[in-house]
Design a binder for these strands. Structure first.
Lengths: 232, 232, 232, 232
DNA sequence: CATGAATGAGACTTCATTCAT
DNA sequence: TATGAATGAAGTCTCATTCAT
């Protein structure tokens, strides 16, 4: 799970002279620390990850970590911003510029999310937040502002587009957005918890198949048809 | 999340005379400790819950807790076993005996789950397990055996019934079961984490509406109709 | 300076059976911790005294200290209350009930202060406060409320008594009180700083002689006489 | 307590051309560092002053500070030496050359001290020394030799002059000198500690009034008069 | 000379666990 | 059994000092 140890920097690309100088190292530090922090936060949780561990994994000392991030909490916020906030902004572009059908737009958004977040360590951030946000109240507001609200808006606006253009039935936006995202997030959650443990008999769901089946179900459910009153 | 102290024995065996004496209390202890532990583990997570808090909430001293459970970890395991063991078999009966349409069966199963688990503190166990199972590897197998596999089988068999009886399209069972359950579990998760924090601008989803919308979407998606190639 | 090491409790007074039981030890703890803390705070200052040192000197572990005082700052406040606040209250009584001349009252107050505070480790508290109060803002208000203001009132009321009864000239109260106390406090300060170091050639002032000379000068200065314009 | 940054060189040797060049600054460095250190040591104490803060205030980097002073302790010693050395000899001249009454001489000495030391940051050195000399044993002897003994001699010789010339009663010299100086030093101490904190209800003493009242009291106490046995 | 990135010992405080009573 | 006083390992964060550039 994740590159083994973040190979002690810069012995890879040997173009020109590439001295691993103070300067170069300083510039690479934030990224290295963020990567190490993401891996460990996802693996052990926020509270259970020791600052020193993060530093060690990034190849620096405890003090150096605090040179870049003033507290463990700020480090976590930086991880969230770096790994999730950027992607959400991208999604907004996609919705604004998309030309094809809304069904295709949703497929595109979901696929992109899976490739860029769901299938990467970044999806573990959801696990950490769900697990520990109640113990760190200012993280709750931060996460709501930076992730939940924007992501919700993104999907709501896509669904609304479908309704407006007559492609979808009129469904409650927030609820539908939730129904759309939840299975994928839950899948990611699972992969970072029980799925990451060596358990027997719990055949890992194939994410690609899962994604296909889920989209198939929900997109059909959204289609405009004559109603047939099938629910409670 | 429940009256602060209110020692809540008395749901146990009402043996003649109802003495709330020392004897009585002694027998109720494990139950009281388990209840207190459930509440606190759900609220704060496993690592962040202090043993003394559990003891206080159960109305005993710190030392007494260790008389019943040799460590906090064992207490946690006991909580998981106690709260999930009972909830497993019930659904199987329902599937076996159900007479009406499979859509109705799924509605029934979902509603029941929400009433009995999703909307109660017990659903918080999912949160705790997801969050901390990687730090307690032996819990993983236990949880997979006792919860994940049986629940999956339950929903797969229900969906299969629908397909067999010609009510549903042929869809991949596991994936469909996941798509069915995940939004509800995720909703419960959310209610125990960000939803429990006083965050601004994150309008809480109404669970009933959510459940209706979700079932509406998925059941329509499962219906047998002429295909119209809308998915990836 | 103060008993060498707080001999590992209770092997002294052997009346009846004197078991150093949990209970007895618990009762003696606050006093033992306060004594240890006073000694170390005076010797090394507040910030430079480690919590663990205080605990060790009191014969307990680090954790035990925090069982009795929730932080180093609260420990310090307790030391101040225990060693200074009580004495000031006593002084108020004395002023209220004193029968003889006000000169005698001032002599009594000063002597008492010297015996109970000035000549004991307690006077070192002044050193600590003067040195570090700017780094611990809430200690400043605490100390002003609990020590400075009451002590000032005490001496002002005594001087005012002398003026009212026609024994003293009319002098500014606060300034005169300061002139009265400052040399004694300063003497105590000196004894806890340079005076506590093994310096050559700095013949230690005899406190008793100092006190006598000081009172002689100031009380004469307070006497009612015909003015003779001797000052700047 | 002085403009926040305002690199305050330029009081040094105005060698031809007044170049504020690198050369110029380099020579001013020690002075600037000493000034910055004085201000910060007085404000926060020795231990609580961070080396980097001193460097910043002097407009150089942390490393540069260590180029001039090998450790924070050595910096502290340099500050003490630099700020007190100059102030020692001046008073001796005054005593030797003074023509008027000894009362006037004492008034003059006290006023001068207040203007040149008491009311300036330099008086804060007393606070720092009193507070931390026990943690830096070798400073004690230095301070006694360079400050305490000379100052004591100065005032003793002035008082002795008064007695010799029949202006003052015969009083113990050292004790009287202490009674004379202590309130003023203590006032300075106070101004650098509690007096510098925003505490309620601790009306700041007016130094001028304090000085007047104090001299009034002590000079009257020193006057030659028929005794009237008012003291202990 | 000057810089500032990096280090790591060490401070305060918490809490699971033990054990004398 | 039940208690709660006591322990001490462990965690976050600070800062004097070093050294490559």
């Amino acid at each position: 799970m994740s590159p083994p140890r973040a190979t002690e920097r810069a012995s890879s690309t040997p173009r020109t002279e590439e001295l691993p100088s103070r300067q170069r190292r300083k510039e690479a530090r934030p990224q290295e620390l963020l990567d190490a922090a993401l891996t460990l936060f996802v693996e052990k949780g926020f509270a259970a990850t020791r600052a020193e561990e993060v530093a060690q994994r990034a190849g620096v000392s405890k003090g150096t970590l605090y040179l870049y991030y003033p507290s463990k909490e700020e480090l976590f916020k930086a991880v969230v911003r770096h790994n999730l906030a950027a992607l959400i902004a991208e999604g907004k572009e996609a919705v604004a510029q998309f030309e094809a059908s809304t069904a295709d737009l949703l497929v595109y958004l979901m696929m992109t999310w899976w490739q860029r977040v769901g299938s990467t360590p970044a999806s573990g951030i959801h696990k950490v937040v769900i697990a520990e946000v109640r113990n760190f109240p200012d993280l709750a507001q931060f996460y709501a502002d930076e992730v939940i609200v924007p992501a919700d808006q993104l999907f709501c606006s896509a669904i609304e587009r479908g309704i407006t253009r007559g492609e979808f039935r009129a469904v409650p936006l927030h609820e539908a957005a939730h129904a759309l995202m939840a299975p994928m997030i839950f899948l990611a959650l699972h992969r970072h918890s029980v799925g990451a443990c060596p358990v027997q008999g719990c055949g890992t769901l194939d994410p690609e198949a899962m994604l296909r089946t889920h989209l198939d179900l929900v997109l059909r459910g959204l289609e405009v048809r004559e109603p047939n009153g099938a629910q409670a």
